[in-house]
Amino acid sequence: MRLPENIERFVKNRKPHVTAGADIDNRVLDDSFAAMEETMRAKSVVNQPSIRRIIMKSRITKLAALAAAAVIIIAVLIGVNYFGGSVDMAGVAWGGVIEKIEQIPTVVYKITSVTSYPGENREMSTKSDIYDGGAYGRRMDMYKNGVLSVQKFILVEKKIAYFIWPKKKQYTRFALTDDQATTKEDLPRQYVKSILSEDYTKLGHGNINGIEVEGVEVNKSKLPGGDKDVIRLWVDIETNLPIRIELECMMMESGAQRPTKQVIDDFQWDVEIDTSVFEPNIPGDFTQVEPR
């Protein structure tokens, strides 16, 4: 054997290429899926979620109330017209949508989620109002059957969080770690990035609440990790800002993957939010409980 002149190149060129066998594939995937589901199951029984679960909780609903038709009714009520509009309309500059929403510090929006329980003839539904004040903080009010169920205040600047349960007259207050404070669960922007970074299908023009929109759709089976999900994004032709996001997917709930439909709409991009919105204003007769 010749002594290599460049030992680094010698080592680099001999990087081991290992082909994983079927045994290890099966063992890793089986055990990993089991571990993942066990973790999800354990989290689903925790009543008071951690900061990281705020958005998860807004997606994964906890109510047995509205019927499956709720999502359809919502769609009809807001008047989405998939076939409306003229072919002469100006189009959305899709390349600029992400850049635009990244530059906007504040946004207010609503999330409606309906999770079906196949075989149990029931559904769970929630509606949430989200106030995203950028670096100042975030607030979420979640309603179950129209009744305020929980309020979450993530005061990033102050590094403090409050969760309030009006029905129980309880609240918890805890300090945010640096990681929690800087980790922002930002569902609309994440979805928009997911959709527009992939090979989406144009849905054409439409009208939502009198606003001319153009839509795109991604079949998530085309995305990495796709689970036959469908995401649709409707963007205002004039402002180039998202108006409505629709998601149909399987989500983890009570230890199992369940069909979930989610609508994110009523966006108010770049809206001025009074800092008083982020004040918990906890009534004096509420009891403080330890965070779990």
């Binding site: 995937l29 990993s32 899926f33 990495p224 990790g225 796709g226 989500m251 993957q257």
Partner: peptide, 8 residues
Amino acid sequence: RGSREALR
């Protein structure tokens, strides 16, 4: 979000 396919 609990996607097995993503983990795979």
